[in-house]
Amino acid sequence: MNKIVSKEHFSENVVKLEIEAPLIAKSRRAGHFVIVRVGEKGERIPLTIAGSDLEKGTITLVVQKIGVSSTKLCALNVGDEVTDVVGPLGKATHIENFGTVVCACGGVGTAPMLPIVEALKKAGNKVITVLAARTKDLIILEEEMRKFSDEVIIMTDDGSYGTQGLVTNGVEGVINREKVDMCVTIGPAIMMKFVSLLTKKYEVPTVASLNTIMVDGTGMCGACRVSVGGETKFVCVDGPEFDAHQVDFDEMMMRMGAYRAEEQAAMAAYTNQK
């Protein structure tokens, strides 16, 4: 069960894993996530699905080493089994022919954006993908994105690849150039916040995919709650995608730091032990 069939390093800290999970591979849609647990003493962590292969019966996850749990997952090799993989969870992305859609993603947020770009393209949209990262080496999945996008705009903080600037500069460039009907954004919370502020200014409807702290991922615990339009929502069952203009990103970022001290201590202990 849940055997890893391939592993690829995108960069030192970002790994792509293909995991055997035939039922999930069959039922998942763009936007869905899974909960993964590594080891009997492991933590349950949510990860958005980056793709699947029906023939092989696998799903693809792109994982960035951040804390103990993601580091343990990245340390697994081909042939190893992931203790638990459950899903697909959350609501699938709402896909229709909107017209022109800008897909703004950064860091490992690029991975879950890939199936959305693909689905949007297949629904007849003109898809412009803005790929952003700190530096050239951290730009991932460019080839795959080009396959389904009408245009790919690369942005790097240091200008080592594409255009120098932030993801918002790329998005604004497109909005100033042509009519944009829809924007989808996935990435670090701070990035999504600024994309949302920008598109709000230009009145472009925007969807953000949130990746908050979760325990069960099925609506049971409420650890993932966020304020959307002044109402409390559960990312796991009401989301993970929401109208970005209604999301209280500041509160979300605050809540994501709930266990920062514990996480840092655990990481230090894990590193020492190795």
Partner: peptide, 30 residues
């Protein structure tokens, strides 16, 4: 929604299902 306010489901799930109070388990609990 302040940090430290949570449901009993979350609190009990962390402690009971995830054994969060034990050091050797990865899940944290406040």
């Amino acid at each position: 929604n302040l940090i430290g306010v949570m449901s009993s489901n979350e609190y009990l799930t962390r402690v009971n299902l995830m054994s969060a109070a034990k050091d050797e388990f990865d899940t944290p609990v406040l």
